[in-house]
Simulated scan of single mutants.
Amino acid sequence: MNIEELREYCISKPAVTEELPFGPDTLVFKVAAKVFLLVGLGQSDSLSFNVKCDPEYAITLRQEYVHTVFPGYHMNKKHWNTLHANRELTDQKLIELIDHSYNLVIASLPKKIRENLF
């Protein structure tokens, strides 16, 4: 997976916006104004990005993929993971983890907002 494929996948999801709220170097994907993925734009050799994750699942992933999944860089380590693409995780697994993050954000929204998104 490269950054263009990551971006295309994220913006293809319903109700997603992309922003640069932290400056020109960090692209942020949101659903209903809530962040579900952050990626640095200055990456050339490898791709890494942050996604939300269920705390127990985050621990499991970090133990299973010790060279690929880390506590979220500059994020709440309990709820965020940093994933390194093109290591131990297949592109399909990366997509599943992006979906997991997106779905966690959707689930945390009030019912009325969720119903108006789709």
Rank of each mutant, 00 (worst) to 15 (best):
K13E: 14
P14I: 09
R7D: 14
Y57H: 10
T17M: 03
W80D: 05
V31R: 02
Y73L: 09
L104G: 05
Q63D: 15
L20A: 09
N76V: 06
V16W: 13
R62D: 14
E88M: 07
V35H: 08
E8H: 07
N116D: 13
L27H: 01
V105F: 03
Y102H: 11
P24V: 05
Y65R: 08
K13C: 10
A58D: 04
L61V: 10
Y102E: 09
V28F: 02
E8I: 01
N116Q: 14
A85D: 12
S44L: 05
K93S: 14
L6A: 08
L94M: 15
L94P: 00
D91R: 10
S101Y: 03
K77C: 11
L38N: 05
N103D: 14
L97E: 04
K13L: 15
A58E: 06
E96H: 11
L37T: 13
L89Y: 07
E8F: 04
S48D: 12
G42W: 06
R7L: 06
N76K: 04
E18S: 13
N103H: 11
T68Y: 08
E18Y: 06
A85Y: 05
V66T: 10
K78Y: 07
W80T: 01
D54L: 01
R62Y: 13
V31A: 08
Q92W: 03
G40Y: 06
E5V: 13
Q92P: 00
K34W: 03
A15N: 12
I106G: 05
S44A: 07
D99S: 09
D25F: 01
N86M: 14
V105N: 00
R87K: 15
E8P: 00
P110N: 14
T26V: 15
A33N: 15
L117V: 08
R62P: 11
P71V: 10
S108L: 02
L41G: 14
K78R: 15
K78E: 12
T17Q: 06
E8Q: 11
A85V: 11
K78Q: 14
G72V: 01
E88G: 00
W80Y: 06
K13S: 10
T68I: 07
I3W: 00
K93Y: 14
K34P: 02
E18C: 07
E5D: 15
A85R: 02
Y102D: 05
L47T: 11
E64Y: 03
V28P: 00
M75T: 11
W80G: 01
S46D: 12
K52D: 00
F118T: 13
L27Y: 08
V39L: 05
F22L: 07
L97G: 03
A58H: 04
M1C: 10
L89C: 09
K112P: 07
C53W: 00
L38P: 02
L117Y: 03
L89M: 09
F49Q: 14
L94C: 15
N76A: 04
L6Y: 07
V105T: 08
P21C: 06
Q92N: 12
E19W: 01
R114N: 08
K112N: 13
P21K: 04
E4A: 07
R87H: 13
Q63H: 09
N86W: 10
M1P: 03
E88P: 04
K78A: 14
